[in-house]
Design a protein around this nucleic acid. Structure first.
Lengths: 337, 337
DNA sequence: CTGAAAGCGCTTACAG
DNA sequence: CTGAAAGCGCTTACAG
């Protein structure tokens, strides 16, 4: 029963075919209760025979609702974010939302553009993992946005918003304490950029653990670099050139840690023996690093589901007070330490 | 300049504010050329001052267009698909589309539901990675669908559609020929289900390579199992119990291969020495398997961009003849063989 | 349950 | 460029 291009079957067509009014047909597609079984079945039959598909877009326009939600992440190829996406998806689809996906690749411009596009598409709300250096203008715009928004992973200090993240400070402290317990006293902090809040938080945790153990802080052991494998290679190479090189490395995340291990191997050293290495995030593949990586689990999937829940609540009640959910990280000990 | 909840600024508001007609304002937001600089700037200024956001949904409804596209994949946590997603995204965003994402987890029901939802949201087209056993009803429905659709990764024989995939047969042949060249004559084919077309194609390639080398086919070396790491463990365990176990394994994909390597280790054997292992897909993490995996690259990102291009073409010209794009795989030799 | 009317925010087509 | 009108496919509200 192919239809000609462009001739969409409308609710009116269904009503005519079933011999009822459009209003009645409308009630039926929306599952209204007080409709007799007889007419309901008659209409449902017509729907099937005509191949009618409900036009949610028209319905939403009229009723001023939305059944879509935007999700803006940093990088889909990063398992941390694809896991977060899975969490968001599972939670939102349960509630009948469909998700628009956008990837910023950490570019403020891209983020700006994605937000616009999603607004133009009348999303009911947005879950945003903000880029690390959101511009003043972007922040201004977001704060004037008239729709529910939940921040995830990274916070924007200037913005009063629902937020789901993890306790980077505590996670870093766990990691560094573990290294100290293993007998290390020269512990490097490798990778990441001091501009991002995620880095600052980690540094605080790193400081706290060292101070509590009475270890002096040596700023030369803190080596910034990009949050990539390459960044890890470069950072550890630089660390090895120090007069007294570190015996352990706390890495910004698992990718950096992988680079650090690679850099060690290139220098003829054995990760886990010549230098202990700890990562962050517990990305799936850390299990098969060689050696398997000790890391801090940051539960991206859970971040996703929690963010979705917050958004759902916020959409239901715009006046609800703001919530911050900070998940507690866990140390996962493997062979790299 | 916060607005009250629900009071959306409309094009009419902008027109009033700028002192022009709504028709003129409409032309300007759509970047029509024949408008004088003066009025254009006046209107753009009003847009900024009022914080107007274009309602693409209303516009699309009126003009019977769509600026969204649906992408239905099997599993977002699988790097093969997240890579494909990256390809689709890059290509489609260039053309101004926004993408609705759905994940089937290989369930026919889920697929059915996602298709419905996307249609209801008036997507302009769909890129579908079909589930492995799409039901007759689903196939019926898809074939009666009135919108552009492109299949990717898996083909549905009963369906005349644009398609982008890779040459599984050739890829399998490459892999098995490589093993034969290495001196192996008892080569197992592990994992996957004989129901899927992807499995059948691989088997044909496997047969072809063996036959050309004059090696008799031993059906007991073909061991089906789920397409997971666990499936790989089980399959290889079974293979090792054969009277004359294989000396090499061609695995359905990289995950299965990882399971196979794990199974070998559990049995006290060394992958790459006691048994050669080849995977399929060249998922990123194969580089860090131990040993690094020899595998067949299937270019998921390229599949994504090609599928997006096909869809874009199809949307522009519904009558265009169908295209099938079959990408040629490449063998990537590492230490597991 | 029906029927007629109005409206969501836009585009289209046309006379001026 | 303007202005008035119609329409995309639905929902809403109301009298019967």
């Amino acid at each position: 029963m192919k239809r000609k291009k462009g001739s969409r079957v409308t609710l009116q067509d269904v009503a005519n075919h079933a011999g009822v009014s459009r209003a009645t047909a409308s009630l039926i597609v929306r599952n209204s209760p007080n409709i007799s079984e007889g007419t309901r079945n008659k209409v449902l039959k017509s729907i099937r025979e005509l191949g009618y598909v409900y036009d949610r877009v028209a319905a939403n326009l009229r009723s001023q609702q939305s059944t879509t939600v935007g999700l803006i992440i940093t990088d889909i190829a990063n398992p941390f974010y694809s896991d977060l996406l899975v969490g968001v998806h599972n939670a939102l689809e349960e509630n009948g939302y469909t998700v628009f996906l956008g990837t910023t690749f950490d570019s403020d411009k891209k983020q700006e553009k994605l937000l616009s596009t999603m607004l133009e598409h009348r999303v009911g709300g947005v879950i945003l993992c903000p880029v690390s250096d959101s511009s003043k203008e972007t922040i201004e715009r977001i704060s004037h946005l008239n729709i529910p928004i939940v921040l995830a992973v990274r916070e924007i200090k200037e913005l009063q918003c629902d937020y789901v993240g993890i306790d980077y400070r505590e996670g870093s402290k766990l990691a560094v304490e573990h290294l100290i317990k293993k007998g290390h006293r020269r512990i490097a902090f490798l990778g990441g950029s001091s501009e991002s809040s995620a880095w600052k938080e980690r540094k605080i945790g790193y400081y706290m653990a060292l101070e509590e153990a009475g270890i002096d802080i040596d700023e030369s052991l803190i080596i910034e670099n990009t949050v990539t494998r390459e960044g890890g290679v470069h950072a550890v190479t630089k660390a090895l050139l120090l007069e007294t090189p570190p015996t352990a490395a706390f890495c910004f995340n698992d990718f950096v840690a992988r680079g650090v291990m690679q850099g060690l191997k290139e220098a003829g050293l054995v990760p886990g023996e010549d230098m202990a290495v700890v990562g962050f995030d517990n990305v799936q593949e850390t299990v098969i690093y060689s050696p398997p990586l000790t890391t801090v689990s940051s539960f991206p999937r859970l971040i996703g589901t929690e963010a979705a829940k917050l958004l759902h609540e916020r959409i239901a009640d715009q006046e609800r007070e703001q919530k911050r959910i900070i998940l507690q990280p866990e140390l996962v000990v493997r062979q790299s330490t």
